[in-house]
Simulated scan of single mutants.
Amino acid sequence: MSGKLVLVPTPIDETNPLEGVAHALLLKAATDELENSIFVIEDLKPGRRRWLSWKLPREVVEDFVLFNEHTSEKLAPDLIKKLKSGHNIYLMSDGGLPAFCDPGQNLVKLCHEQNIKVTATPFQNSISLAIALSGIDHNKFLFAGFLPIKDPERALAMDEIVGNKITTVLMDTPYRLKKLLEELENKIDKKRNVFLAMDLNSENEELLFGPVKQIRSKLKEFKREFILVLAP
């Protein structure tokens, strides 16, 4: 059984404490589950300093894996193998949200392609979190917000969004999720991928990646809080 990739957002100011759920998860991973845990950081020196300031086990820092723009291409395949063998990987950046505008994005993408679970500890901005969890390139992206409710405004907005050649983030009310997926399936190329993040950071969190038809076939409950990321 495969492990999972966990994005662990950290304070931008390293003098601030780590969020409580993230701290408890890392502490458990570094003690009870150490044998199956891999800790991946962006920069060794600040990464170690932050870890120790949060009073997490000192002995773990010697085994940190350095993953940044210089090492990501070489290390990503090995990390995927570790995940497939049952290890859990905890990905942290120097400060902020990992995989959002940093090399972790490609690792997330590879996980989706290999059907490896990706999740994250709590983060306060659902839009940024959905983008990071998507693994979709987002050096440039459009936040389209909530679509108009009625036609012709809704149809016109959808045509404009579908015609965009950049990553686009969409939102709508839970009871219009089914309608939105039907509209997208009728308008976009069948091979164009979307990422659907539902009930983020909750016990019912569900993340789906792939063509719209595939996502619709996997959904059992359509009335969900969601954010949708449309790939270019």
Results as ranks from 00 to 15, higher is better:
3 G>M: 08
6 V>K: 02
6 V>L: 12
6 V>C: 12
9 P>A: 09
10 T>C: 05
10 T>D: 02
11 P>V: 06
14 E>V: 00
14 E>A: 09
14 E>T: 01
16 N>M: 14
16 N>I: 05
17 P>T: 11
18 L>S: 05
20 G>M: 09
25 L>D: 00
26 L>A: 10
30 A>P: 03
32 D>V: 15
32 D>E: 14
33 E>Q: 10
34 L>D: 05
35 E>N: 10
35 E>A: 15
38 I>L: 13
38 I>A: 07
41 I>M: 05
42 E>V: 07
42 E>A: 04
45 K>E: 10
47 G>Y: 10
48 R>F: 08
48 R>T: 15
52 L>Q: 15
52 L>G: 12
52 L>N: 12
55 K>G: 03
56 L>I: 10
58 R>K: 14
59 E>G: 12
60 V>P: 04
60 V>D: 06
61 V>F: 08
62 E>A: 12
63 D>H: 15
66 L>F: 04
66 L>E: 08
70 H>W: 13
71 T>N: 07
73 E>P: 00
73 E>C: 02
73 E>G: 03
77 P>K: 08
82 K>A: 13
85 S>P: 09
91 L>G: 05
91 L>Y: 09
92 M>A: 03
96 G>L: 06
97 L>E: 03
100 F>W: 09
100 F>E: 00
100 F>R: 00
102 D>K: 09
103 P>E: 13
103 P>N: 12
103 P>G: 11
104 G>I: 02
108 V>T: 01
110 L>R: 13
112 H>R: 05
113 E>K: 15
114 Q>G: 10
114 Q>Y: 13
115 N>A: 15
121 T>V: 04
122 P>F: 11
123 F>E: 00
123 F>A: 04
125 N>I: 03
129 L>C: 01
130 A>K: 02
130 A>F: 09
131 I>S: 00
132 A>D: 01
134 S>I: 01
136 I>Q: 03
137 D>H: 11
138 H>C: 12
139 N>C: 07
139 N>S: 14
139 N>K: 13
142 L>Q: 12
146 F>R: 06
146 F>I: 02
147 L>M: 09
148 P>L: 10
149 I>P: 00
149 I>R: 14
155 A>V: 12
155 A>N: 12
161 I>M: 07
164 N>D: 07
165 K>R: 15
165 K>Q: 15
168 T>L: 13
169 V>I: 12
169 V>Y: 01
170 L>T: 09
173 T>C: 09
178 K>P: 00
178 K>T: 03
183 E>K: 08
184 L>A: 02
187 K>M: 08
187 K>E: 05
189 D>Q: 15
190 K>R: 14
191 K>W: 02
192 R>L: 06
196 L>H: 01
199 D>C: 09
199 D>N: 15
199 D>Y: 01
199 D>M: 10
200 L>A: 05
202 S>C: 07
204 N>S: 11
206 E>R: 14
208 L>R: 04
210 G>R: 07
211 P>K: 08
212 V>N: 04
216 R>M: 14
217 S>E: 14
224 R>W: 07
225 E>W: 01
226 F>R: 02
231 A>I: 03
232 P>N: 03
